[in-house]
């Protein structure tokens, strides 16, 4: 049984079908990259997994348990699945430290002092020890994004979803954020990434999925998908993306 299983996931916005029957298995400790042209449905798929969007049909299973049952309380699931967004979405009225401690305090009801040591360790681990007491607008994009990752990690999630987390960054800051992902991979975190960083996907992913028009056109290990893509649409996309 895979950690996360998608079975025939369908998501519609009105008449527009954004996910059109997605089947995907994500094993524990795997890093899975979703690639594809803009509008292919990568972000929407991640939002569905985190129950930010209800799905119209299909199933999403976490440890074998269907989390997409209509009427299920999404909070418990979201606390187990962390998500990081393209635009960081830090809370601007809180310091980095407060951003990170908010959810564990509210959801797990852990008192501040009890959280503090573990949270400080997280900040140190990602090179943010000096930045704990800064507000988001006093941080660089790369620092903000790393704080956003720490914020999600502080909930001790079992799976992390990353939606193009380097797309809003200046090129020289992309590296520091990708390093964090590699670190997490080493620690055995289960991760799903929507990304335009083909080089990174090729090197670091365990599995790459090419999405187009809400379907997974082709999936496989990176050597295969980047090296010997079978589907003509994958070939066309890669030819353009790797140019």
């Amino acid at each position: 049984m895979a950690k996360l299983e998608l079975r025939g996931v369908v998501k519609r916005f009105g008449d527009v079908t954004v996910c059109n029957g997605v089947d995907l298995d994500i094993e524990a400790g795997q890093m899975v990259c979703l690639i594809g042209a803009s509008g292919g449905g990568k972000s929407t798929l991640l939002r569905c997994i985190n129950l930010l969007e209800p799905i119209e049909d299909g199933e999403i299973r976490l440890d074998g348990e269907d989390i997409s049952v209509p009427g299920l309380d999404p909070q418990g699931v979201r606390a187990r699945i962390g998500m990081v967004f393209q635009n960081y979405n830090l809370f601007p009225h809180m310091t980095a430290l407060e951003n990170v401690m908010l959810a564990p305090r509210r959801v797990h009801r852990t008192p501040r002092d009890q959280l503090r040591p573990a949270v400080e360790t997280l900040f140190r681990r990602f090179g943010l020890a000096e930045r704990m007491h800064n507000y988001p607008d006093q941080l660089s994009g790369g620092q903000q994004q790393r704080v956003a990752i720490v914020r999600a990690l502080a909930m001790r999630p079992e799976v992390m979803l990353f939606d193009e987390i380097t797309s809003a960054l200046d090129p020289q800051l992309v590296g520091e954020v990708l390093d964090v992902l590699l670190q997490l991979k080493q620690e055995g975190m289960t991760m799903v990434l929507a990304t335009h960083e083909m080089g990174f996907a090729r090197e670091a992913a365990d599995k790459v999925c090419f999405l187009k028009a809400g379907r997974i056109v082709e999936q496989g290990p990176p050597e295969q998908l980047f090296g010997t893509p079978e589907h003509p649409e994958t070939q066309a996309f890669l030819a353009r993306a790797l140019k």
Partner: peptide, 11 residues
């Protein structure tokens, strides 16, 4: 997006 980020944390 602020709401989405907060919800995604389980709040």
């Amino acid at each position: 997006s602020q709401r989405a980020a907060a919800l995604s944390l389980g709040l």
